Computed example of a mutant assay.
Amino acid sequence: MTDPHDVFELAAQHEQVVFANDPATGLRAIIAVHSTALGPALGGTRFYSYPSTGAALRDVLDLARGMSYKAALAGLDLGGGKAVILGNPETDRSEALLRAYGRFVETLGGRYRTACDVGTCSADMDLIARETRFVSGRTVAHGGAGDSSVLTAYGVFRGMQAAAGFAWGEESLAGRRVGVAGVGKVGRHLVRHLVEQDASVVVTDVSDAALARVRAEHPEVEVVASTAELVAAPLDVYAPCALGGAVDDDVLEVLSARVVCGAANNQLAHPGIEKSLADRGIVYAPDYCVNAGGLIQVADELDPAGFSFERAQQRAEGIAATTREVLEVAARDAIPSATAADRLAETRMRDVGRLRGIWVP
């Protein structure tokens, strides 16, 4: 059970936390704005069946903080925020609910700008945009960037190559055995990049439909029944691409991979795991460093000239260089890579944020 005092302390580290309740549509949502030191907060909306409101609050607070660090490390002039809609997207999603959520976003006056996340898609953003100006990740038909998982996966792939170079001395994944846990939107695109570079890929997912799509596209990919089976298998790289908390003490007990690099947010289950990874000689590419491609993609919609996929992809290419810098700082200062990434992001938020203060519309 979540300790309410811990959650309160975590919420107190955020600039703003707002709850929405609209009985007419069934909307129950939370928006957390962690920091606007670098600019307005941009972060996706997660539509998910949480076991409790407390669990949803904990998740949105953790995710919002991660978005601040992600934007800072990616060099964007954006702050960090996140939102969650409590419910089952398969049964509770409706135009009325999404438009009510759009009105909720509008009340923040631009301090928070939403986009897609787990359980939401670009078509949802189009509906939300009928009630608010502050939406990114819309469909291409409405001038948006479309599916942000495309560049999320590309950034993870480039970060994985950089981590491979650090681990084995060459930035190639050819012949490496890569385990991908979660082959939904991002994991599916990542598998394609890996197969194209002649990696040996093994996957798992709780969704039979997701596995069937991957099998149809890449018959050579090996499928295992569970994440537990995947992490216990011989691997060179482990790529968590589902929900958070994927790297815990149990996983570390059996993990043979030399590199951990995936798309999931908040992969480390608790403080101290980052040191355990470093002590075991595992190269960890911090999640918010390598999975910033989607944020870069939707942020490009804010350019006055309009969205350019080529420009966004060029910027996402920089994730490889950022990953190298993080790993080099970690090695130089004898600290875990997660700590090195935090320090780099915090330095930018402090130095640039000092000039800007809290962003107001």
Rank of each mutant, 00 (worst) to 15 (best):
V260F: 07
V221T: 04
T132D: 09
A216N: 14
G179A: 04
A100L: 01
I358K: 15
G245K: 14
A321G: 11
D303R: 15
E220H: 03
R324F: 08
V260M: 07
G80R: 12
A263M: 07
Q16H: 12
V156I: 00
P51E: 15
D6S: 10
A115R: 08
L268E: 12
T152F: 01
I282A: 11
L42K: 12
D77Y: 01
S149M: 03
A299C: 07
C241W: 04
V150C: 03
Q197I: 00
S35P: 01
G281C: 06
S52T: 14
C261R: 05
N88H: 11
L10V: 08
T323Y: 06
G155F: 04
A269G: 08
R28P: 04
T120R: 05
L76V: 02
Y50H: 10
G169E: 13
A321T: 13
R188C: 01
N291Q: 12
G294P: 02
Y154K: 14
E196T: 06
G110C: 03
R177M: 08
Q313W: 02
V298D: 00
L86Q: 11
V231R: 11
L230G: 03
A341L: 07
E220Q: 15
L355R: 15
E220N: 10
L86N: 08
D6G: 01
I296M: 11
P23I: 07
C241R: 14
L78T: 06
G187V: 05
Q13G: 03
Y50M: 09
E131D: 07
F166L: 05
R130G: 01
E106K: 13
S200V: 12
G109L: 05
A331T: 10
H193D: 06
T139H: 13
L57N: 10
N88Y: 05
F166A: 15
